[in-house]
Design a protein around this nucleic acid. Structure first.
Lengths: 312, 312
DNA sequence: GGTCATCTGTCAACATATTGTCTAAGTTTT
DNA sequence: AAAACTTAGACAATATGTTGACAGATGACC
């Protein structure tokens, strides 16, 4: 038996479901039956988290929770596959590709510029791990890897563009299946001027969409004034920026400060990406929040949605 | 088999019919007879969803629902195959109004940065007009309009990025459905260095995918060497570039020439977009084919797939 | 052409089921 | 003490179902 050591808070962050919902799904529909600590706290296993992620994906896609909550994991995966490809050829694939193999497969596909292979790997990943798991365990490491290879010179900008394009389409496809509802808070996602790599921004956007935000995705290289304009027009609760390369753009500090100044005080400014630490000082001074990684972003968005204020 | 677990909500999403209509077709015409849950909710099977989709197509094409609702699935498929040719001459006024309204709706959504409205309009468009129709009658004019507004200064670069992002995701969704089989010829789609607007390239890519090509989409602003590298690695039959703005980049002529020189002789170089005529001379000299519009591109791709050679 | 019946989609009204969120009170952890 | 967790129940919002009515279109018939 797999060890169950994840408290409910962790499950909340990884699935985007609220603790309320997780408990009620357990109580009413027996969706999962977590272990308990000596003091009666719930402890979830990896498998149960995957299960909840899939249930979340399925309900957002239109299934009623009551009708799918008790299905075995294999059926859930089959249904998830239907969402991804409405009229698919029924392909029998080796069930256990493992996330490491999956990552390798993706990298190989990028090197070969094989869009079908890349999409196929991503699709399988999303079925096995749920959309949130795919983001954190496959796409995020993939983005890191691609960035490294690109700095090495092992791959060209074209490969990076190619990967961005495929991932973008895939994430867009997956995200539109979960039509966010009206009340959702809005986050504007972009990359500041001079930052041409958009994979990080894509990850942030997809993650936010999965967590129930309405995402206004603007893509790479936009000046602060324009980002602020969009944020104000949409009454965004947050603006998320990704900075990857270069790491020493003196302009950028000014962009951050200008953006922060133009944004309403109640709009949070979140900055993540590989190069974010390099701008630590100016970000700190401008009053931006630095996101270490995707789980950190998820957690912060979760807090923001509940009305928590950072700084002041 | 034939498990029926799809609630009516999902059928609504996948068919584009309203729940009212689905129920009334069942009650009056016995179009489908879904299973029921213990609490009397309808549960539809994949086959029934297919059936309803076909009935939707047939009624939109002019058949009366009463006369087709009870036909077996095979007959429905046969009838649907007959209506493939939507003669453009026989469009009634409401359809034209619909198209114009749809374009307006899209423009409004872009101005308001409302991604859900934009996606919704596009989705309805693709159901009503088919994917090719959507491309030529909605997205292409929309791209034109957005370009105009941007040059006017009526909208900002952020709006343009926003529209690109949404359309990109939408087209990615539509295109993967057509993911051609292995033998399909490959076309590489991109935008040359300095050309930041990718809507044209997206249109070209989606159009090619619809025509059965395997599309390797690279996105905007790539140097000739990289594009050529990708084309060679993938043995591309064609490279399609979109040029929109600026119209007077002296670099570009060299890029075209360099690219043409690096490409194998059997790889066609197609260049389209608003600014293409402005580079007429250099394109002509380099041996590129200038695409006037989307239908022209479609026709050219079709010729290429049949093995036709242009120039020599 | 005018009239009428039929076909078709939409809507309203009301009942029930489902689902997510909230509150309150007590317990455990930090 | 503050924060987080648990349970139980209440509540509100959404979805879904049925029925009946209505209006616009279509075609038959005079």
């Amino acid at each position: 038996m797999a060890e169950a050591h994840h408290p409910i808070k962790m499950v909340v962050r990884r699935t985007g479901l609220s603790a309320h919902v997780i408990r009620i799904w357990e109580k009413r529909y027996g969706a999962v039956k977590p272990e308990r600590t000596g003091s009666n706290r719930r402890l979830y296993s990896e498998e149960q988290i995957t299960r909840l992620s899939l249930l979340r994906d399925l309900t957002r896609a239109g299934h009623s929770i009551g009708s799918v909550a008790r299905l075995p994991l294999s059926k859930l995966r089959a249904l998830a596959a239907d969402i991804q490809a409405p009229s698919p050829a029924v392909v029998n694939r080796s069930e256990i590709a493992g996330k490491i193999g999956m990552l390798d497969e993706c990298v190989t596909a990028v090197k070969k510029l094989d869009s079908r292979a890349l999409e196929g790997a991503l699709r399988r990943g999303s079925i096995e791990l749920g959309s949130q798991g795919l983001l954190q365990r496959v796409i995020a490491p993939l983005a890191e890897t691609i960035g490294g290879l690109w700095r090495d010179g092992s791959i060209t900008a074209a490969h990076e563009h190619f990967a961005s394009a495929v991932i973008r389409m895939f994430l867009g496809h997956a995200a539109t299946a979960f039509a966010g509802w009206n009340e959702a808070p809005v986050v504007v996602v972009a990359t500041p001027t001079g930052q041409l790599h958009e994979l990080g921004a894509l990850l942030a956007g997809a993650s936010a969409a999965n967590l129930g935000w309405r995402v206004t995705y603007l893509g790479p290289s936009l000046p602060a004034a324009e980002i602020a304009g969009v944020a104000i027009q949409n009454r965004a609760r947050a603006v998320a920026l990704s900075v990857v390369y270069p790491e020493d753009d003196p302009q950028l500090a000014r962009e951050f400060a200008a953006l922060r100044k133009m944004l309403p005080i109640e709009t949070a400014l979140l900055v993540g990406g590989r190069a974010a630490p390099a701008y630590y000082e100016s970000l700190e001074k401008a009053g931006a929040l630095i996101m270490r990684d995707l789980p950190h972003l998820s957690a912060t968005l979760d807090d923001l949605r509940r009305g928590k204020r950072f700084k002041g």
